[in-house]
Design a protein around this nucleic acid. Structure first.
Lengths: 239, 239
DNA sequence: CGGGGGTTTGACCGGTCTCAACGCTCGTGG
DNA sequence: CCACGAGCGTTGAGACCGGTCAAACCCCCG
């Protein structure tokens, strides 16, 4: 039995709590299984979709990590996010029926392909799904507000601290360590996301190491003093 | 007959093309009229909604201009957008049933109040509305990607040029001049949005004036050389 | 063993911030 | 009608953070 032929079923997927609504009746849950048309494997460095491509489906990440990036006409690009298991990508394509960014796998990954017209059809009938879709989109909007705050008002140290805390928190929610993580992206990609140059990312990381806040070995990072990172992001008002 | 008692009806609102789906049947169009529960006036400097407030409705701007801003725990704030007639605000509240930002009127304004549960209910029945809601949210996501690019990779001049071009383009789409505009926001608010200090905004504007690209009188701006602004945002590859 | 992508580190530069002073405009009240 | 103050905007001088350029390093992998 090849992996491809395994029955695709959200109802018994271990990521269900992450990407599906909760509190569904068994009957509703079963209907949602039909959302996932198929699964698709994407190897490291390959694109799940790219700018200009016809928009057809949203994708739920089963395994692996992606980055999304936009490219301006003059060739600059900006990483707009890093996505991991249970997160939904492709929302950018809805407005104009074309994707406006690239989604690149940072490691070998697998996604569930959910044709958007099927999502719309089903969410007209299952209001819990409708609500869920709205929440996912709203959550993305709120996330981006946070990134705007970061890019607009934080200094390099604060940005990197916020980035590490966010990553480790999301990994922890997925059952990984609350203090150790493996960066799936390069310094340059981190820099692009944070509005910094790769040298600045590297230097700032080195500073964290000097200060005893983290340990860094290549892509492996261990957070020694999460409290210190939190203080950087959120300078406590000295009372 | 007071303004308040005027029949609220999207079907004959002159902003219809901006905030409503197109291509509806007369019957559908009439049903959508029931979306707008009421209208609400907001005076300059007053809040339409604020961070932490219970989320109930989305708002379509009829007249006036708003800014939305988020505030970090330590008090920094970041303007996340400027919204004008025909645009929808409040999407941030959907995820957690609470608003996560403030919406402040920059001049006396009026909005249409659209209870979100009614939107959801109706969009289960009118698929054109459903699609429309999805597009509005997706459009906001894509807009924010653009802001991330701006904040993450552009220099002060480029940011301000992009800002002016964007504003004037949106105003033009609403029937105003394609080259003149009145800024409804302060230099500080522009700076917050663009990730710059107010002094930098002021200095950069002055530079544009020196270069003969714009004329500035207080809040009144006249664009003399739009092409120059476009070149700043998008350094043409010299062939 | 060699090569290459990714990373670190250093020296220097420059754009933006900071701090400060001054100016302008408009509304208010004497 | 004018004086005045508040809010907003402009301009300058100097500091500093992060960018730029360059060299060296490291680790993995062919």
């Amino acid at each position: 039995m090849t992996p491809e032929s395994i029955k695709v079923a959200c109802s018994n997927c271990n990521l269900r709590e992450l990407c599906m609504p909760v509190g569904l009746s068994p009957e509703e849950l079963q209907r949602l299984d039909s959302l996932v048309a198929t699964r698709r494997k994407v190897r490291r460095k390959e694109l799940l979709f790219h700018n200009g491509e016809q928009f057809v489906s949203l994708y739920a990440i089963r395994t692996g990590v992606f980055k999304t990036r936009i490219t301006s006409e003059d060739g600059r690009d900006q990483v707009t996010g890093f996505q991991m298991a249970g997160e939904i990508i492709g929302l950018d394509g809805i407005v104009n029926d074309r994707h406006t960014c690239d989604a690149v796998a940072l490691e070998d990954s697998e996604v569930c392909v959910m044709p958007f017209d099927r999502i719309e059809e089903l969410s007209r009938e299952v209001s819990a799904l409708q609500r869920h879709v709205h929440q996912i989109m709203s959550r993305e909007i709120v996330r981006e507000h946070g990134v705007m705050l970061l890019l607009g008002s934080m200094r390099a140290e604060e940005r990197l601290a916020a980035f590490l805390l966010n990553l480790v928190q999301r990994l922890h929610a997925r059952g990984f360590s609350a203090s150790e993580l493996v960066l799936r992206m390069t310094r340059e990609e981190i820099g692009s996301y944070l509005g910094l140059k790769l040298e600045t990312v590297s230097r700032t990381l080195s500073k964290f190491v000097d200060d005893g806040v983290v340990e860094v070995n290549q892509r492996h990072v261990r957070i020694l003093d999460a409290e210190a990172l939190r203080r950087m992001v959120n300078p406590t008002v000295c009372a």
